[in-house]
Amino acid sequence: MSTKYIYTFGLIMTVVVALVLAGFKTLTADVAARNEDIFNKRQILAAIATPMAEAGQDVDALSDEAVLELFDNQVEQTVINAEGEIIEGTMAIEVDMEQEKKKDEADRLYPLYTVNLDGSNYYIMSVRGNGLWDAIWGNIALEDDLNTVAGVSFDHAGETPGLGAEIKDNQSWKNQFEGRKIYDDAGDFVSIVVRKGGARNPEHEVDGLSGATVTADGVTKMLYTGLKAYEPFLQDIDKASGMNLK
């Protein structure tokens, strides 16, 4: 077989493969993008699963259309920068936390979702950090007072199933976050600590996860740095609304 044959074969193969793949990609791109959008929105809504259940809606059972509709009608999306100023013209859902984490801290953008449920507002913030193996991320919902946690949702890229992956799978562990406060009585930011061996301070701590110390510490660190980034903004709303959290 001549070299010319090999090159011709290679060329034809490349063209055919590229066409097949590009065609298939175009075919599935829209559905895939919609799936990704719904997947992300579900993760955000999972943070307010408890308040939603009280309002009579089961987040897990919501249809795809219902998720999109709820986001259109009841969720206000805000993007803020590191100084706590609102950036106009972008949707929070478009903020890619993975990309933001690579930027310098001063340049980062943060998404904020304000969900209106039965007249009360819930503020959902996104955080991202590192677990044992890989990235972990999550959403924290605060109640109207911008202090009490209404719920959390976490996910991970590759934590050990049954150990670190419990941050996503273990609902009763996640439920512990509800009612915890991110500010202490003096008004200082303390975040929420995942305490190995069991929570000591019921206001600001939750129990650790057995066999997953590194992941649990990752959650603690992620919550601290992640929520602290929203602090300038929280203080602004605080002043604007005339409420005094501290």
Binding site: V20, F24, T28, V31, A32, N35, I38, F39
Partner: peptide, 14 residues
């Protein structure tokens, strides 16, 4: 494999 990957993205994202 690329086809499987794209198909999975469209069929079952989680």
């Amino acid at each position: 494999v690329t086809i499987v990957n794209e198909a999975l993205k469209a069929l079952n994202y989680p």
